[in-house]
Structures are given as structure tokens and as C-alpha cells.
């Protein structure tokens, strides 16, 4: 969309002017516009369908298979894919397809909770740092620096080492390592918005800080947060799988994909299917989120128009 059109859009909001004919131009909100462009992006829509597919698989897992996640048929250990076990069975004779389907729940939930946690705390800290500045900013920014001073997986390991290995603690660790990523993003956005005229105007009107933050600054920093959250979903799932693989996350009999892979390690030669399918599932889900994230970034970036 060109700048002139944008100007007209602004006019459209106040259609009281004489001689103005509102029929000619239809106003589109920036969000609708972005959504329209996202829908045209074929790669992003592919990503979207991948995610929807896994959500459906996760929700309807009990209907999709007649096996249970911990149904051990020891006679059928390490069976190759067959009509009865589409993805084969693992070392305890459990149906791998079933475990992957239920595993989708875990991975998506882990991604959702970790990202939501990081998003809430990161955004809050970022806003506080950026809006109030001075020593508050100093303290919060240094905390971000410290957290970012570790390679993320190592920090996660450190946190799990303190809290003890479990899926919940892995979740907490992943949320914490992602806080500074959101925090820094929001802080820099707030810093630039703070100088904008509409924020100055709001201040001059005597609006309270809380209102300025939640009604003026936050809505205008949403775009990068949404993009980061989508991409963060993918990284969170990868990180959870890595922790599970290292034995620091989910434990038996939880069908967490990373943990399934760490079991499969011992049977590479005997039963490669125990290795292939959980890995492909992780890759597809993460790819899905990355595709949507990339598309969203392009759709929400005004420079990418046309």
C-alpha cells in the first residue's frame, strides 16, 4: 500500500469533511491487511496447516489409535512398521505412532506454556525497563545481559541442575532462558515509542503510566512480539526435546519426543524407525512455526508491502 493511500485511510476515520465520498476507498486496519498478506504467502499457509494437523492429532490422539501410550507388548519388541503398528514398536513393544500422537500434546503444550511464560515476564520487564529508564533499566538490562551470557541450552541445564530433572522444571528453565529475548525486544521498542508524539500527548493529557503503557505503548509494540512468540514456539520445542534427550526433562513413560529419541539411540542399527519418526515430528512442528513466523514478519513489516 502506498503512503497516499495511508493518508486517505486516516481521512476515512473522520468522514465528516465536506465533499468527501467514503464509497471510493475502503479502509483496512493494518492487522487485517497483514492477515490478508499472510494468507497469500504459500509457505506460511503450509506452516499453518502443519501446526493445525499436529494440534488435531494431539487432541484426537485417543481416537486415532487403539493402543495406549504405555501398552507394553514385550513379544512385539522393536517391530518394523506394519499395518498393525504403522510406525513400528519401540524397545518395550509400545506402538510408536501412538506415542508420537500423544507426544504432540506434550510438545505443543510445552511450547505454549514456555512461550507464554517468557512472553508475559519478558514483556513486563521490557516495558518497565524501557518506560521508566534510569536505574530500573540498568538493573533489568544487566539481568538480561547475564542470562544471555550463557548459551541458552547450557543455562537451561544449569537451571534444571538446580531445580532437579523433570518435565515441569525443564519447562520453567525454557521459559526463563527465553525471557531476556522478549525483554530486550520489547525494551527497544518501548524506548523508541516513548519519544513518539502520541505518547507525549498522552502524557501531557495527564494519563496515568499504566494507561499509557497498556493502551498506547503495548498495542504498538505487538507486531514484533507476535513474530518472536511464533518463532519462539519452535525454539522452545527444540529446547524441550534437547533437555528430554539429555535426560533432564520428561521421564518414563511420558511420550516426549526428545526422550523417545534418547531411548532410540541404543537401537539405531536394530530399529532405525524408533529414531526416524519422533525426529521427523519435531522437525515438522518446528518448521511449521518457523514458516508462520517468517510469514508474519514479512506481513507485519510495512517495508515489505508491494
Amino acid at each position: 500500500m502506498t503512503t497516499e493511500k495511508k493518508e486517505q485511510e486516516k481521512v476515512d476515520i473522520h468522514p465528516n469533511k465536506e465533499g468527501y465520498e467514503p464509497d471510493e476507498i475502503t479502509a483496512i486496519s493494518p492487522w487485517k491487511d497483514a492477515f490478508r498478506r499472510l494468507r497469500k504467502n504459500r509457505l506460511s499457509m503450509t506452516g499453518f496447516f502443519i501446526i493445525v494437523f499436529f494440534i488435531i492429532v494431539g487432541i484426537f490422539a485417543p481416537l486415532l489409535t487403539s493402543h495406549g501410550i504405555d501398552d507394553q507388548e514385550l513379544v512385539n519388541r522393536l517391530q518394523p512398521p506394519s499395518s498393525e503398528h504403522w510406525f513400528g514398536t519401540d524397545d518395550l513393544g509400545r506402538d510408536i505412532l501412538t506415542r508420537i500422537a500423544y507426544g504432540a500434546r506434550i510438545s505443543l503444550l510445552v511450547g505454549f506454556i514456555a512461550v507464554t511464560g517468557a512472553l508475559i515476564f519478558g514483556t513486563l520487564l521490557g516495558i518497565i525497563a524501557g518506560y521508566f529508564g534510569k536505574w530500573v533499566d540498568m538493573v533489568i538490562s544487566r539481568i538480561f545481559d547475564i542470562l544471555l551470557a550463557f548459551p541458552s541450552i547450557l543455562l537451561a541445564i544449569a537451571i534444571v541442575a538446580i531445580l532437579g530433572p523433570s518435565l515441569q522444571n525443564a519447562l520453567v528453565a525454557i521459559a526463563i532462558i527465553n525471557i531476556p529475548i522478549f525483554g530486550r525486544l520489547v525494551r527497544s521498542k518501548v524506548l523508541s515509542l516513548r519519544e513518539e508524539e502520541f505518547v507525549m500527548a498522552a502524557k501531557a493529557q495527564g494519563l496515568k503510566n499504566g494507561r499509557i503503557i497498556f493502551h498506547h505503548i503495548l498495542p504498538n509494540s505487538l507486531a514484533p512480539i507476535i513474530v518472536q512468540a511464533t518463532l519462539g514456539f519452535g525454539t522452545a520445542i527444540l529446547e524441550a526435546a534437547a533437555l528430554g534427550f539429555l535426560g533432564l526433562g520428561a521421564k518414563q513413560p511420558t511420550p516426549e519426543w526428545g526422550y523417545m529419541l534418547s531411548n532410540a539411540r541404543d537401537f539405531i542399527q536394530l530399529a532405525p524407525w524408533t529414531l526416524v519418526f519422533p525426529g521427523i515430528s519435531i522437525m515438522l512442528v518446528v518448521l511449521g512455526f518457523n514458516l508462520i513466523g517468517d510469514g508474519l514478519r514479512d506481513a507485519l513489516d510495512p517495508k515489505m508491502k508491494n
Binding site: A242, V276, G279, I282, L287
Partner: peptide
Amino acid sequence: GVSMPVFWLALM
């Protein structure tokens, strides 16, 4: 490439 778990690629 960026969507793949490193450890899975290694095992494959």
C-alpha cells in the same frame, strides 16, 4: 536446517 534438532541429525 534450522528446524531440525541437532541431536536427531547427528543420530541420523
